[in-house]
Design a protein around this nucleic acid. Structure first.
Length: 208
DNA sequence: AAGTCTCA
DNA sequence: CCTG
């Protein structure tokens, strides 16, 4: 982690979303990546489907008390990996970032891990499967750059875009907690953090 | 329903 | 080709 005072002043606020560019230096990124590999070892990535049966282009897994899941039954949080094994612990390096940026928030009980390989995207959506919208959602980017799009609390409405790079952190918090957001494009191979390319995104949140 | 396609 |  870089200097603590940076943590309290985002480098950029886009549509109410605070963004800390380069919050994690390369050493911190590698340390966190090592912890994420442990998570994936214990809870392998899977490919969720929309309730309509269409596969998402991202692969995902989770850590913590809950993990996000979707299939024809709908979007929800599960207390176990779909294989039945428990979700592993939330990476301590990610918890540190949460505590630094949101010392007054409740402890996160889920760390969703999304893997974007070449061509993966995430359509505009809200994070609204949690019980308490007063708690932030914290996003950490690792690996290839991604074009992030952020709008307002309603699906129709203007959006802004920003490239997120490895080590960047942002938060959906306060008035932007229910903002529609998504990933339009991955600049595949733009980072050498992940062997073979791709982007990992960690999102910490309070589920219940 | 977090997808995907089309068009201007 | 890119953006919305």
């Amino acid at each position: 982690m870089t200097e603590e005072k940076r943590a309290h002043r985002p480098d950029l606020v886009l549509a109410g979303v605070p963004i800390w560019k380069g919050f994690l230096d390369e050493a911190a990124q590698r340390a966190l990546l090592g912890e994420v590999r442990q998570v994936v070892r214990a809870a392998p990535m899977f490919s969720p489907r929309t309730p309509g049966g269409k596969p998402l282009s991202v692969q995902m897994t989770s850590a913590g008390r809950y993990g996000w899941y979707s299939d024809r039954q709908g979007y929800r949080y599960l207390p176990h990996h779909p294989s039945g094994t428990p979700w592993p612990e939330i990476p301590p390096e990610a918890l540190d970032i949460w505590r630094t940026l949101f010392p007054a928030a409740r402890a996160p009980d889920c760390c969703l891990v999304n893997l974007y390989r070449d061509g993966a995207r995430m359509g505009l959506h809200q994070d609204r499967d949690e019980a308490d919208f007063s708690q932030p959602v914290l996003s950490i980017s690792l690996g290839d750059a991604a074009l992030f799009r952020i709008g307002g609390p309603e699906r129709r409405g203007p959006t802004r875009s920003v490239w997120l790079e490895s080590g960047d952190v942002l938060a959906l918090t306060g008035p932007s907690r229910l903002a529609f957001h998504g990933i339009d494009r991955i600049r595949f191979g733009s980072s050498r953090l992940l062997a073979g390319g791709g982007r990992l995104n960690l999102t910490l949140r309070v589920v219940d």
